[in-house]
Computed example of a mutant assay.
Amino acid sequence: MKLNPFRKNRKNKIDFNLPKVYRTKTIRGVSMPGIIRNGTHFFVDLEVYEDGRVECWNFEDFEHFKKDVKRGWVSVSIPNRENISIHGLGSWSINDGIWIHNKESFIDYVWSVIKYLNPNLDNLYSYSEKRENNIIIGESGKGKIYKENKRIPDDPFPKKVIGKGANLFLKDKEDKYHLIRLDIYNEESIIVSRLEKSFEITLAQLEQMILEGKLLSELPNGVQVNILGLGNFKVEEKQYATRISEKLLEIKDTIRKLEGKPSTIETCIKIHQQYTANPTNDLREQLKEAYENIPEHERAYVGDMDVKDTIIRMIIYGEQEIENWSHYQLAKRMGEELPSISIPKPKND
């Protein structure tokens, strides 16, 4: 007798009481410069995939992407005297912007990228809303940065080496400034891209370029910055910026994580847990060293969303650090009872 695993039961329902499986599929794509208008203008790397989907903080299908461009969510320019915010670097007000695309030409350009990836336009994705228990199920479109490590020149199945991207500015031989991207893989392989021609450097060479002022995270007022594929603008005024020394710490931390080692944040959290369980002067000094090894712009992530790094700073630098906590400052302005945070003191003080 033939067994049908999908037989109907007496209630006329399919019996799916079978072992569960799932599968994943690799969808090729490329990263390209873009702008998201969400309150202010954010420089982003749009991720364009062969199935017609574009990751632009929304991730639906190409028709939705076109609507995002037409309504201004995906922007093709930044008005003069408004700000550009660049992840991991800072924010600047700009002037004299010259932009390559209008809305229609940008849509056409992205479509040409999709056709390059998928010449026959096979299996283009069509979005349909997914709900579970009346909750819309979203999907992240962020892909993985990678390079191919070929064993032979025509290797049909090259190994994918996973990396991570970071933004910096490059000052070229003609003293022109470019917003570039570092694709970081390990100490021996950092690819400098978002230029007419990419090139590869080591961590040691990157440090040397920083010393020589060729790679930087801050900009003098009045300089012109080029973004490949988008346009150029003149920097009018800095709102805030990350110091290059902090970016270097971030890049080194990225390499540690890519090598499977604990990040500086993870190391700090672990020592804080040890200190809480057994508060000693030695562990407080270890905590101080671990905390100060974290790039400044990432230190808030050692705590939760409310307290951030306040507890760590109170342990290291003194209980007066609570006065810098946003909740404390708000309560003080409102004339309300000031919040408190209890921290363990070293047993051998």
Rank of each mutant, 00 (worst) to 15 (best):
D61I: 11
D61N: 10
D61V: 12
F62G: 03
F62L: 08
E63P: 00
H64Q: 14
H64Y: 14
H64D: 11
K66M: 14
K66W: 04
K67I: 11
D68L: 15
D68F: 03
D68G: 03
V69R: 01
K70D: 09
G72Y: 02
G72N: 04
G72M: 05
W73L: 09
W73E: 05
W73Q: 03
V74M: 04
S75I: 14
S75M: 05
S75Q: 05
V76G: 00
S77R: 04
I78F: 00
I78P: 06
I78G: 04
R81Y: 13
R81F: 14
E82Y: 13
N83K: 15
I84E: 02
I84C: 01
S85L: 12
I86M: 03
I86N: 02
I86T: 09
H87M: 10
H87D: 11
G88F: 00
S91V: 13
S91I: 12
S91W: 01
W92S: 01
W92Y: 15
S93M: 11
S93R: 12
S93Y: 06
S93V: 03
N95H: 10
N95P: 06
N95D: 14
D96C: 08
D96F: 03
D96R: 13
G97L: 06
G97P: 06
I98H: 07
I98Y: 06
I98E: 12
I98C: 09
W99D: 02
I100V: 12
I100C: 10
H101Q: 14
N102Q: 07
N102F: 08
K103T: 08
K103C: 07
K103D: 08
K103F: 02
K103R: 12
K103V: 06
E104A: 13
E104L: 09
S105G: 10
S105R: 10
F106A: 04
F106Q: 02
I107F: 02
I107K: 02
D108N: 15
D108C: 07
Y109N: 10
Y109T: 15
V110E: 00
V110L: 07
V110G: 01
V110P: 00
W111L: 15
W111Q: 12
W111E: 15
S112H: 07
V113M: 12
V113G: 05
I114V: 15
K115V: 14
Y116W: 12
Y116V: 08
L117T: 11
L117N: 03
L117W: 04
L117H: 04
L117G: 02
N118R: 03
N118H: 01
P119T: 10
P119N: 09
P119K: 09
L121G: 11
L121Y: 04
L121F: 05
D122R: 13
D122V: 10
N123P: 06
L124C: 05
Y125C: 10
S126A: 10
S126E: 13
S126K: 15
Y127G: 08
Y127Q: 10
Y127P: 06
Y127I: 01
Y127S: 07
